[in-house]
Design a protein around this nucleic acid. Structure first.
Length: 210
DNA sequence: ATATCGATTATCT
DNA sequence: GATAATCGATATG
């Protein structure tokens, strides 16, 4: 099997991430999450959330830098992985120039390659196309499908195609971008900082009624 | 179909 | 000691 996505997929630049997380989040829709595990896993990003650093009560960086969240205060384009509810890892990418906190949470993606490996990582069986969203629809599921853990991946450079985890652009143009309130938070829960590709079946949350 | 709830632990107060 | 950027199972209509 291939272990790289090919020359048509180029890593995003450091400058791409050195901006306001809302801008980064919107522009990440349609990009590709790439994993060498060592086999190749790829998935199209369809749902993300922006977290704004010091002025955002819902952000992990809201009350200053700690050991846990230090990646968010470092240079842009690096993986911030945290563990939550005693069960789940979640993947973010640091945004804003070094010294200013901010990030984007990856909430869902559409698998493109490595589907069998993702099912193994998730410890589930896929019997029909309608089961596929169970692989990568939701931040905990996405991280598990890509075997993302804090020990392995926190601090990883997501702008380098020589990383085992990175983000690529294959020229795909995202359509139907929408903005909604963020999911699963209690503070600042009204701010519309969740970005989705409307109608995409891999977006997490309620099953869409046609 | 929606609602509620338990699991399980790193991190912070 | 309380909480949490979740998930999956169970209960109920």
């Amino acid at each position: 099997m291939l272990n790289s996505p090919g020359p048509g997929v180029r890593p995003l630049s450091r400058a791409f991430f050195s901006r306001d997380p809302r801008r980064v989040a919107r522009e990440l829709l349609g990009k590709i999450l790439v994993r060498r595990d060592p086999t190749l896993l790829t998935a199209r990003i369809v749902e993300v959330e922006a977290y704004l650093g010091a002025k955002d009560p819902a952000a992990h960086s809201a009350s200053g830098q700690t050991l846990r969240n230090s990646v968010l205060f470092g240079p842009p384009g690096y993986a911030y992985v945290y563990f939550i509810y005693g069960n789940h890892y979640c993947l973010n990418v640091s945004c804003e120039p070094e010294g200013k906190a901010g990030g984007v949470l990856f909430r869902a993606a559409e698998p493109l390659s490595g589907i069998d490996e993702m099912a193994q990582a998730r410890d589930i069986e896929i019997h029909r196309p309608a089961d596929l969203p169970k692989l990568t629809s939701g931040p905990g599921r996405l991280a598990q499908a890509f075997r993302i853990t804090r020990t392995r991946d926190n601090g990883c450079d997501l702008t380098s195609s020589s990383s085992s985890l990175w983000i690529g652009d294959d020229g795909y143009r995202a359509r139907g971008i929408r903005r909604t309130p963020r999911i699963g938070i209690t503070k600042a829960a009204d701010k519309p900082l969740r970005y989705i590709l409307a109608g995409n079946p891999f977006v997490s949350g309620k099953t869409k009624t046609r």
